[in-house]
């Protein structure tokens, strides 16, 4: 059983979405020991002894995180299917503390697919959070 299936079907943490189930779309991205990984490309048993943070873990005390608030403000989602993967990916990039800008961000986000083609507001939302660090 993959980590994604374990999160969704056993723990009922359905915030993590499954699109392609073979590592292409990025919807299932979670943070494993703080690093963004595809939860469809890890068996649940491999995560034993490690910390897993899903999209449900981004909000604190029921309040959206700064990144989630920026996604709302910039309308960085349409259908919402890809959103958990973008949020966890962006959180990992922000946590790394590397400089993020219009030049490097599109490439860093290339592992996540949004079929509503809403990339621009996603980039704007992430850059806003990056600029306030």
């Amino acid at each position: 059983m993959t980590l994604a299936d374990f999160l969704r079907d056993r723990l009922r943490l359905t915030g993590t979405h499954l699109g392609c189930e073979h590592g292409v779309c990025g919807a299932c991205t979670v943070l494993l020991d703080g690093e963004a990984v595809r939860s469809c490309l890890i068996f649940a048993v491999q995560a034993a002894g490690h910390q897993v943070r899903t999209v449900e873990g981004l909000a604190k005390g029921g309040e959206p995180s700064p990144l989630q608030r920026a996604f709302l403000k910039h309308r960085a989602l349409q259908c919402g299917f890809c959103t958990p993967g973008f949020l966890t990916t962006a959180q990992a990039l922000l946590d790394r503390g590397l400089p993020l800008d219009r030049a490097n961000l599109p490439e860093l986000l290339a592992g996540n697919i949004c079929r509503c083609t809403g990339y621009q507001p996603i980039v704007e939302a992430i850059l806003e959070v990056a600029s306030t660090r």
């Binding site: 993959t2 073979h22 590592g23 490309l41 048993v45």
Partner: peptide
């Protein structure tokens, strides 16, 4: 042998590979 799994896991979920035993080298 299972290393990072980024190639083997897709093969296994597509059932192109069906090893009976995985030896995780992590």
């Amino acid at each position: 042998a299972l290393a990072g799994g980024q190639s083997l896991v897709p093969l296994m979920v597509l059932r192109l590979a069906q090893p009976a035993v995985l030896v995780d080298l992590a």
